[in-house]
């Protein structure tokens, strides 16, 4: 048998050391694929909540994603169920529906029908109501809510304030 083509003890030891080097460089390679610090730093958006008209859906942008902002009308506020209240975002004395405007099924942007006050996702027919709850499958849950923090009239997206934390803890959003 070819003896020297088989690795002896030192051959295996050398292979192990080389393997450590390969693993080390894989770690560096993995980190090279990570999102850049400049991408992560761009993760905050500040919204002035005093400018939104009632009952109209406005789309903002945060981390490249659409953010739905709907200032609720007085009737909407009055008619809110318990579960809808749980998703309600209050700034000053205005009530808002704030959500990441991507369908929780596979990420298309649902369209808002102002007359029906509901969202329809064209991709696979999912539906949501004006409060952001899912009303028709396939989407598994209501709209996700982006981390937010309320500071006076302003809302900072990307930072988790107490109101957001409460929603997260109670499972209203993922």
């Amino acid at each position: 048998m070819h003896n020297s083509s088989r690795r002896g003890f030192m051959g295996k030891a050398f292979g192990a050391v080389a393997g450590v080097g390969v693993v080390g460089s894989l770690v560096a390679m993995k980190k090279t694929w990570d999102p850049l610090p400049s991408v992560k730093a761009a993760g905050f958006t500040t919204l002035d909540m005093s400018i939104y008209p009632e009952g109209e859906l406005i789309t903002e942008k945060w981390r490249g994603k659409p953010i739905f902002v709907l200032k609720k009308t007085a009737e909407m506020v009055a008619s809110q169920t318990e579960s809808q209240k749980a998703r309600d975002v209050v700034v000053g004395d205005s009530h808002f529906m704030i959500a990441i405007g991507l369908c929780t099924h596979l990420g298309c942007i649902p369209g808002y029908n102002a007359a029906e006050k509901s969202f329809l996702c064209a991709c696979h027919g999912g539906q949501f109501n004006w409060a952001g709850e899912v009303t028709k499958v396939p989407p598994p849950r209501g709209f996700d809510i982006p981390p937010f923090k309320i500071e006076g009239n302003k809302m900072i997206l990307g930072e988790a304030g107490p109101e957001y934390q409460a929603m997260k803890d109670s499972g209203v959003t993922l």
Binding site: A28, M29, K31, T32, D34, L36, P37, S38
Partner: peptide, 13 residues
Amino acid sequence: YTIMRDVDFGWLW
């Protein structure tokens, strides 16, 4: 900028 400062280990490559 991007490779030398921003990318992790970009300077190394």
